[in-house]
Amino acid sequence: MGEIKSDKILIITTISNSYPGADAVGQSHLEYDPDTYIIRLPDPVLLPEDFYLKAYSKGIAGIIVMSSGSDCPYEGAYERLAQRVQKIYDKMKENGISISRLKLTTICTVCKAAFLKEIKGMRENIEKLKAVKDAS
């Protein structure tokens, strides 16, 4: 696996919940890390396992999957997604990518604090990985 060069964080959001949640953060003028890129999907369950690995190989440093959790309009999709993410973790380990670069979480339409916390958490994870590498 190629070395991850950038600091970019990809945020996968749902049309129904986490994307409006990200808007709520904006409406409150709360600031967060600008090296973050939000993609809007019906549901993250749409993304195959290799999507994630490809994204890392392109240089994405971290991915936060902001699902709708139990508020998901697609009954049963969250369970599928959670299982898929488990498999992705396994593949990440196989490919020598730290699993701290992927986070599955649930963000509601007004979960502003949680949204910010997730970004902060992912940034910290990425910085930690960099520090380890610098030290070695």
Partner: peptide
């Protein structure tokens, strides 16, 4: 179909 895309991920 409701368009969730679960199918797309496994094809």
């Amino acid at each position: 179909c409701k368009g969730c895309g679960a199918c797309a991920a496994v094809c």
